[in-house]
Structures are given as structure tokens and as C-alpha cells.
Amino acid sequence: MHFLYFDPGLGAMIIQAIIAAVAGFILFSKNVMYKIKLLLGLAKEDKDDVFDDIEIKDSDVENKN
């Protein structure tokens, strides 16, 4: 059940399938590029990066340690 108290935009709902397909392609090609760079030894770490990765640690996993 959703409590919809703002307009999600009909267009925005329909278009997500297209965006997702394009996003899938972007992610895939990026991954390929990264692997190529890795092979050629061109991949580098961004040292000035202050932001984390998207992954979140599960607290369950933490507790087991």
C-alpha cells in the first residue's frame, strides 16, 4: 500500500523503464572500460574522494564479527 501525498508524475513512472535500460547499458560499458583500464594499468584511485561507496554494511554482518 502506498500513501501517495505528492504527484509522482505519470510520465516519470512510465519513462523509468527506458531510463533503466539506458542506465543498464551505461553501467555495463563502464564496467567493461574499467576492466580494460585495469588490464592496461590505467585505473587510478581518486585520492580526494570524500564520499563513500553506495554499499551499506548490514548490521547483522557486523554483529557476527
Partner: peptide, 14 residues
Amino acid sequence: ATLSKKGQLNIIMS
């Protein structure tokens, strides 16, 4: 509209 979970994750990650 429908969108698979994988599709939505692709949007978010990109």
C-alpha cells in the same frame, strides 16, 4: 508502468 527491481537498481546506481 512496471519496472523490475534490477532495472530500478540500475537507475539508482548510474
